[in-house]
Every structure is written in structure tokens, then in C-alpha cells.
């Protein structure tokens, strides 16, 4: 497995057409437009790895994305049916796709601003329905594509271009929110935890019902410039040093967990998912309609 975190533009990686994950990518779109040190490439690699481990044919996947850097992880790079939608609405579009194509794996990859900010309401309700979607929310703590504005997940006190003195808002705990709303599977990992991340993505794709992985991923260019963390490794070191397994975190107080990234599986349930129940109503009705 070759999931490298490089500090220089991986100009030659797309020429390595012998790489076993290369077949999942739209060749004509490479190299990616991601910035130097961006975490999105790691997420793309982990995702392709998860699909490969599952032997899931890309023809059985529909990717749905929103607007922002992390929406570009599958769109246009991952070669499957792809609906690159409007800002924040990926989950609502994905709902229509999944209801009418239940046999397909419908997977959403988008950012924190997209999914938890402008699309927050759709997130709550998709989780509440427990619809069989897989959502990978790439959380880089800011609006990166527009140049580094504060987002709903920006840490309190952090500097961004729209919180130039310091951010006074506390961040949204998106994974905890989704767990509370009724999702069947929720976990959180970072781009430092590449192998557990790829495993969690694989599990989330297989898991029936609404599954959600929050992926903390670095943005050394737009976010890093304001907090003086200008390289990808600055963030990976931070993730390594501040992350804590959820099993350990449960022993700690809220105060002790400030500035910690809690990683691991937050919740797993086996509640019946939405589309199955929707079509059960149809079966019941067609049984005594004549």
C-alpha cells in the first residue's frame, strides 16, 4: 500500500499507471489541483484503498459531492457516476439518488463548511432518517477554497481571514451531532491515522444505514498561513500529539479534552435504514391495493 504524505507536488505520481489504485482515477484529470501539503490526496488514497479492499466495482458507486476543496476528492478524480452538486446540498441530492437506485453505493465526500455549515440541516435529517448513505466529511477547520475563512469547525481562538483577531465561536462537534441524530455508524480519524482511516472508510461503505466518518485533514495553505503552520507535517505532528482514542477520552473530563482530537468509533447501531422501510410501505400497499 502506497499512501505517501509528500511535501512536494507529486508530479510524477500520476505517471505511475502501474499503481494498483490508479485504475480508480480519471486519468485525464491528473495531476490533482490540491495544494502542496493538502490532506485531500491522503483522503483520496485512503478512499481508493477502501474501495479496492472491498472489491467494489466503481460501476456500483455513485459519488455525490458539494462545493469546496474536499468535494474535489472524488469529483472529478474518482471515476464513478458522479454528481457534483451545489454548495451544501450533496446529502439532499444523494437522497434522491439512493431512493431511486437502492442497489448502488451512494457515497458523499465533502468538507466541513459544505456538510456541517451551509448543509447542516440536511446532515441532521439524513442522519435522522438513517438513510443508507456513506458520508466522509473532510474537516480542515476552515473554508479553504475561498482562501481561509472561519468555518463552523474552526477551533475557538484560531486566526482566520474572517476572524483576524481570533475566533470567538466554539466549533461544532459534527460527528457527535450525527451520532445523536440517529446514524448507524460514526467515527472520526485524521490524515495522520492513514490505516485506521482507510479501515473506517471501508467499514462505513459496507455498513447499512447512515454512516459518517469525520476526517480531520490539514490545510497548510489557506488555514496554515494564519496560524503559522505552513507545512502538511506541522498538522500531522499536531494530530499525532493531540489525538486521543475515544476509549481513553471517556475517562477524561470535558476540560481535559479541550484541544484534543477524539478519534475512533463514536457509535455503531443496527437500526433499520430508511429506503428499505420506504419500500416496505409500497409492498404493504400493493399487497392490498387490488
Amino acid at each position: 500500500m502506497k499512501l505517501s504524505q509528500t511535501e512536494t507536488p507529486p508530479e510524477d505520481c500520476c505517471e505511475d499507471s502501474n499503481h494498483r489504485l490508479h485504475k480508480y482515477l480519471r486519468q485525464e484529470t491528473l495531476p490533482t489541483t490540491f495544494c502542496v501539503g493538502c490532506g485531500c490526496g491522503t483522503v483520496l488514497g485512503a478512499f481508493a484503498q477502501a474501495v479496492d479492499e472491498l472489491s467494489l466495482p466503481p460501476e456500483e458507486i455513485v459519488m455525490v459531492t458539494g462545493i469546496g476543496c474536499s468535494s474535489w476528492i472524488p469529483s472529478p478524480y474518482f471515476k464513478a457516476d458522479t454528481l457534483h452538486t451545489t454548495h451544501g446540498r450533496a446529502l439532499a441530492f444523494a437522497t434522491g439518488v439512493k431512493v431511486m437506485l437502492p442497489r448502488m453505493k451512494v457515497i458523499v465526500i465533502a468538507g466541513d463548511g459544505d456538510i456541517a455549515g451551509i448543509g447542516g440541516n440536511h446532515l441532521i435529517h439524513a442522519a435522522r432518517r438513517n438513510i443508507d448513505l456513506t458520508v466522509f466529511m473532510v474537516n480542515n477547520w476552515n473554508y479553504g477554497m475561498t482562501g481561509g475563512q472561519m468555518s463552523p469547525t474552526t477551533p475557538q481562538g484560531a486566526l482566520t481571514t474572517t476572524s483576524p483577531y481570533h475566533n470567538v465561536e466554539p466549533p461544532l462537534k459534527a460527528a457527535e451531532l450525527v451520532a445523536a441524530a440517529g446514524a448507524n455508524y460514526v467515527s472520526r480519524w485524521t490524515t495522520y491515522h492513514v490505516f485506521p482511516l482507510a479501515e473506517a472508510m471501508q467499514y462505513a461503505i459496507s455498513k447499512k444505514g447512515f454512516s459518517f466518518v469525520e476526517i480531520i485533514a490539514q490545510c497548510p495553505v489557506s488555514y496554515g498561513k494564519m496560524v503559522n503552520m505552513r507545512s502538511g507535517s506541522d498538522f500531522l505532528n499536531l494530530y499525532r500529539d493531540t489525538s486521543i482514542r475515544i476509549e481513553q477520552a471517556r475517562e477524561l473530563s470535558e476540560e481535559e479534552l479541550v484541544d484534543k482530537i477524539v478519534v475512533g468509533k463514536l457509535v455503531e447501531r443496527d437500526a433499520e435504514e430508511y429506503v428499505t422501510k420506504l419500500y416496505q410501505v409500497n409492498s404493504e400497499q400493493s399487497a392490498h391495493k387490488e
Binding site: 439532499a92 434522491g96 439518488v97 431511486m100 437506485l101
Partner: peptide, 14 residues
């Protein structure tokens, strides 16, 4: 917003 989004998604689903 979600309604028209789902309608568009469903259309692409055939």
C-alpha cells in the same frame, strides 16, 4: 432546497 435537490438526484437515477 432539499426537495428540488432530491428531485434532481432522482432524475439522474433514471
Amino acid at each position: 432546497i432539499a426537495s428540488i435537490a432530491a428531485v434532481i438526484g432522482a432524475s439522474w437515477a433514471g
